[in-house]
């Protein structure tokens, strides 16, 4: 398992209307085995911060440390880092031309050079874990949203990551499918996986999160336990946001 440290992270985007400061000087530590939930209004930079952690976006300034290794250090193998940090997306992003099994085995075979038989065995084990072993041979299009997202989680787990990032994993799902995905995430959290996630599923945050982080306009405004953040936030903007959604 791993420790994620975000130090003074800033990310600017050049847009036609000038420079957009998506993340401003944000610092956050996720300790080994901790679950940290990021909340905040749309456009506050939650996804951008998450994407910086596994290098999908390059930070404008600041540092990301995974187990003490700086991702910005030119000596660091960024691809190796990505293997160690799994990511689950809002829109699943399964590979539509591959079967469920191939979706899961592709990266272990091509990136880790795992023998095919071993990768398949691993994939079946992971599919069983997310309750979908009977779907191994179908294509993603034949699955419901909840099932697709569970496959996406299995696919990320196949690389045996030390930490997992989730960007609104349930917000593209119909309400009746949210629970099946959250259950898988809860079991991961129980097993001690280090998790950094963006979600507005308060039930999950209450049950699993060690910390809740509130972001607004690119800044981390307030950090606290779920109980404190949902019942008595200190900051006015956090209060406003929570009042809005509570």
């Amino acid at each position: 398992m791993a420790k994620i440290e975000i130090q003074n992270l800033s990310k600017d985007f050049n847009t036609p209307n000038g420079v957009l400061h998506a993340v401003k000087n944000a610092s956050l530590t996720v300790n080994d085995g901790e679950v940290v939930v990021i909340i905040g209004p749309s456009g506050s930079g939650k996804s951008t911060m998450l994407r910086c952690v596994n290098g999908l976006e390059k930070p404008t300034s600041g540092h990301i440390l995974i187990d003490g290794t700086d991702t910005a250090d030119p000596a660091t193998d960024i691809r190796k880092m990505r293997e160690e940090v799994g990511m689950v997306f809002q829109s699943f992003n399964l590979f539509p031309h591959l079967t469920v099994l191939e979706n899961i085995t592709l990266a272990p075979i091509k990136v880790k050079k795992m023998p095919k038989a071993e990768a398949s065995e691993l994939a079946m084990k992971l599919l069983k874990r997310v309750g979908l072993e009977e779907k191994a041979e179908v294509h993603p299009a034949q699955l419901s949203g909840g099932q697709q997202q569970r496959v996406a989680i299995a696919r990320a787990l196949a690389m045996n990551p030390k930490a997992m990032l989730f960007d609104e994993p349930t917000s593209a799902l119909d309400p009746e499918m949210i629970k099946e995905v959250l259950d898988v995430m809860l079991s991961l959290a129980k097993d001690g996986m280090t998790m950094l996630l963006v979600t507005h599923e308060m039930g999950f945050a209450k049950a699993a999160a060690d910390k809740v982080v509130f972001m607004d306009k690119g800044e981390i405004i307030e950090t606290g336990t779920p109980e404190k953040m949902f019942t008595a936030p200190e900051n006015d903007r956090a209060k406003d946001f929570l009042a809005h959604i509570l």
Partner: peptide, 20 residues
Amino acid sequence: GQMEAAIALGMSRSQAFRYI
């Protein structure tokens, strides 16, 4: 998202092009 998912799994850009 297809390229991003591939990259996030540790594939190189050329692997992502070739397989995804």
